[in-house]
Amino acid sequence: MDFLLPASLLVLSPLIGGLLEGTFRKLNARMQNRVGPPIVQPFYDLFKLLQKRPILINNYHVIMAYAHLVAMVIALATFLLGGDFLLVIFFHGMSLALLSMGAYGVRSSYSQVGATRELLHILAVEPVLIMIAANLYLNTGTFLLSEIFNSNFLFKSMPLAFLALVAVLPAKLKKSPFDVSEAHQEIIGGPEIEYSGPFYAPIYLAKWLEEVLSAGLIAMFFLGNPVITLIAISVTFTFVLAVDNSTARLSYWDMVKYTWEISIPLVLVNLVLNYVGVL
């Protein structure tokens, strides 16, 4: 049982991620008073991408797309199978870095700008996750997720850390106001601009896995009762989408400033409160 559930979740993660992405798009459309695409739309997109004629820019560029996917899969597998939380964070960061390295490998200036902004995403998101890991260690005495998963309703002792996580979720999922690296109206997809057809598919798939990983991170705070876990995930994602629909994009500098001035201090306060014994 201990191994069966995480393993099956891992195998089904592309399916879950695709449906999650489809739900996002449907919900987005409903928020704008539109009908929206069917919920299985991301699968249509993926299968269509696989059937397009491949146009290769250079080998390095394509290898980095697949490396990006593999690193994301390793991060997700480590998370679900109960590995080290720090390893999850580093593989997640590495996956973003690989995407940005691939984007630096082509001459398109949009791709170059997107790659630089992707690195700024790492700078914004990863420190907050590492601080949350430190906070988890203070509460549970371990970085091993298999033991953290045995905890009950961690939200009670680290509410501010959860708030910080919600605050970086737009940057992590590339949603407004912090979709600076993708920025479809501005740099037309940033790092992914030169990928086409079957070579864009791994990046598209990695996006779904990123959403599953984010859902897992939210779930980590609300373990114990499956119903509460699911409610917490859906409420948080709905909130992120509402913010996405109601804000404009900020500049890349605002993103880094915001996370370093608000999210990190939030986790730090939580850390101190935990240490003192208030929470």
Binding site: R34, V35, P37, Y44
Partner: peptide
């Protein structure tokens, strides 16, 4: 978008 169409610009 109900037909799955997106304006990609790419």
């Amino acid at each position: 978008e109900r037909f799955g169409m997106i304006n990609r610009g790419n």
